[in-house]
Design a binder for these strands. Structure first.
Lengths: 347, 347
DNA sequence: CTGTTAGCGCATTCAA
DNA sequence: TTGAATGCGCTAACAG
């Protein structure tokens, strides 16, 4: 038996009107819950709607309606499989659904071309606003749309060459605090492993690392800083390299999610998890169950997402304030790995 | 300075035509890349489009166009923050984007009312098809839409009272294999902790547990089976209860993600992780880093998502085959916790 | 309170 | 190869 045979075609407002014996305008009034419709008329219309399986067509409605809102929001993120991005999206959904706004989301990985394609597809569908976790490093390409009335809000990475709202974590402060905590435990040789150096969050987290060193009067040792690490696999190699230097670090600061995971694999494999202090930026799932627990600078993706959504809607509601820059606080959660004292010879 | 002042209003096809000195229809032809337009005319139109910042309006276009495809897909899932759901969604996105189809996704938790609301919002926007991980237990409410031409594909949980396509994991087989593996190690008292018993996956996983016991000639002990556990917190209590029975289990089968996590917390807290064998259904992040590693029945969310998307598009391409039931294989990944031998007195 | 007419932005006839 | 009319489903503006 076929599941989908002979679509009977969808009823229009005109057919509903005919069936209910009223004008199309009256049906429209009922649908939009306008006042000043007699209860009997409304009832007749509702019956007709049910009988015909009529469903309001939002697109057609928006075509004529003033303001032209599609009640949809575009969200462009790195990868929905990443827990951080997923939580951001979830929070955006919450705020949006309250306004009956739906979310069109797409992952773009680290592919600028795909970012462009996805943004285009979303704009073709006339999303009312856009929340963007960009992978591109120059955003003037979006200026035209932005100023034409589709507000762009940037998440996690600030807009470059574009005057738009931004929400992100306190990357500098969080990193500084983590590294300072390691220093307080007596560590002097602290390894840094971070993401691609063109990414603003990577830059900021390295900056926090440096500030903490400077505040403690420590010199940065270039051989303890590894950048451009963007996968667990590369992180494993980076740890390997760090431990091979003349004076290996007694502590590690891994400045990104996947980097942290890669480092955990190596340290665990070598039985070093209890001997090298380790703090990661961004939480890892089940970090508290490991032995020792994984200390981490925890972000608040839900608050970031909520804030981003609120900023978009504020713009849609007519706000003309200067571009906002909202920094969401992070929190160093100590679970054991970050509180280890230095061990003279780790390897 | 304001970020969003004076939206100049968006150029229409008519304005483009005027500026290029051609007819509306010619612009339309250029936009849709129809053959038989002279290169010069096309060039003039393209210039006008760029100058005016014109952007094709897909909604208006679809209104008149035959077939009326919005090139959008609705995806309704439990919770986008759940890694399983996120991976499914990601795979759907991949398939969809190749067809320039965008995905409207929404989380509904376990709230039937919200499921209804979200589905309504998506249908109002005339999504071409729908991928649904339902929380409702009766789906005849979707029959009308489904037969009207909006194909519904069910994921993770099969349709009830509705003749629609379904993609899910081999819950029975996976559970049977996991429990059989425990039995092979010598376990005779194996605890089961599972999700709400109205959920089909929970029913199937319990069935697999029972089949394994039966195949080994073991009687099911009711005091070792705990159902309706749907959060880590409840899972912790369930483990607590199981360990308090007269003859506590020497092995545990936790039949869901969050249940597994709750169990891990308790076992770790009590120092029992190395003494009670444990296999979970559905993988947990970083499970291989724990000590011992968490053995798990791993699903293939990406394949589930890909298959679901392909089924939707097959229907949209006109397939009238009988409703499909695609079972995706699972894999028991042994990492240590499931290979522990029975310990006489665990507590 | 209810109905009529025009038109949103575009694609489809049909005609030149 | 190009263009003028007509209408998609709905709402705005204006009647009654």
């Amino acid at each position: 038996m076929s599941t989908l045979r002979g679509a009977p075609g969808r009823a229009t407002i005109r057919e509903v009107a005919a069936r209910a014996g009223v004008s199309v305008k009256s049906v429209s009034r009922v649908i939009n819950a306008e006042p000043s419709v007699s209860p009997e008329l409304a009832a007749r219309v509702h019956v007709a709607i049910t009988e015909l399986g009529y469903r309001h067509n939002l697109a057609a409605s928006n075509l004529r309606r003033r303001g032209q809102r599609t009640l949809s929001l575009g969200v462009v993120i790195q990868d929905i499989s990443n827990p951080f991005a997923a939580s951001v999206l979830r929070a955006v959904e919450e705020v949006a659904l309250r306004r009956r706004v739906v979310v069109l989301a797409s992952s773009i990985d680290a592919d600028p071309h795909r970012e462009r394609q996805v943004v285009d597809e979303l704009l073709r569908r006339r999303v009312d606003g856009m929340i963007l976790m960009p992978t591109t490093v120059d955003h003037r390409q979006y200026a035209d749309e932005h100023h034409r009335g589709v507000p762009f809000v940037f998440v996690d990475r600030p807009p470059v060459a574009l005057d738009a709202d931004y929400v992100g974590s306190d990357n500098i402060g969080g990193s500084r605090e983590a590294v300072a905590a390691l220093i307080r435990r007596g560590h002097r040789r602290i390894g840094y492993i971070g993401d691609t150096r063109s990414i603003s969050t990577a830059i900021e987290r390295l900056e926090g690392y440096r500030q903490a060193l400077a505040a403690a009067g420590l010199d940065e040792r270039p051989d303890l800083v590894v950048q451009d690490v963007n996968s667990p696999g590369r992180a494993e190699r980076a740890v390997h390299d760090l431990l091979a230097v003349a004076e290996p670090p007694t502590a590690l600061f891994t400045a990104q999610n996947l980097v942290t995971i890669g480092a955990l694999r190596v340290l665990r494999g070598w039985g070093l998890r209890g001997r090298i202090a380790h703090i990661g930026f961004d939480d890892v799932e089940l970090g508290e169950l490991l032995e020792p627990g994984v200390s981490a600078v925890c972000q608040s993706p839900a608050e970031i997402g909520r804030t981003a959504a609120e900023l978009v809607f504020a713009r849609l509601d007519g706000s003309t304030e200067p571009a906002q820059r909202r920094i969401v606080q992070v929190q160093l959660v100590e679970r054991g790995s970050g509180e280890l004292a230095p061990v003279r010879s780790v390897v």
